[in-house]
Amino acid sequence: MKVDIKHLESLSKLNIVDSQEDKFEQDLVKILNFVNEITELDLPEEKKTMGVSLSSLREDEVTEQEQCDVLANAPSKKDGCYLTPLVVE
């Protein structure tokens, strides 16, 4: 079992410091070897759709949620919007 640690960092939007990369890779390989047994199982074809069953769906509407309460947790905000570094020149 091999993992491309750089690729996983990129998918995960994480940057593991160089000194810890080897240990991370070893741990991931160890975990994957541990879960690998399921790839070898011979299971019957799936009958159900994947995922949980939804018992009911509600109308998508804004209720009591106050925009300012939610925005209060943002590290940077302006005029009722999240503020990020410039994306488009």
Binding site: V3, I5, H7, L8, E9, L11, S12, L14, I16, F24, D27, L28, I31, L32, V35, I38, T39, L41, L43, E46, M50, G51
Partner: peptide, 24 residues
Amino acid sequence: QRRIMLGNFVLSSGYFDAYYKKAK
């Protein structure tokens, strides 16, 4: 961080069917 990377591994192209789909 370890679990996020593990999750991305089992969901990534080439491994999704063998790991995630099988687990479901």
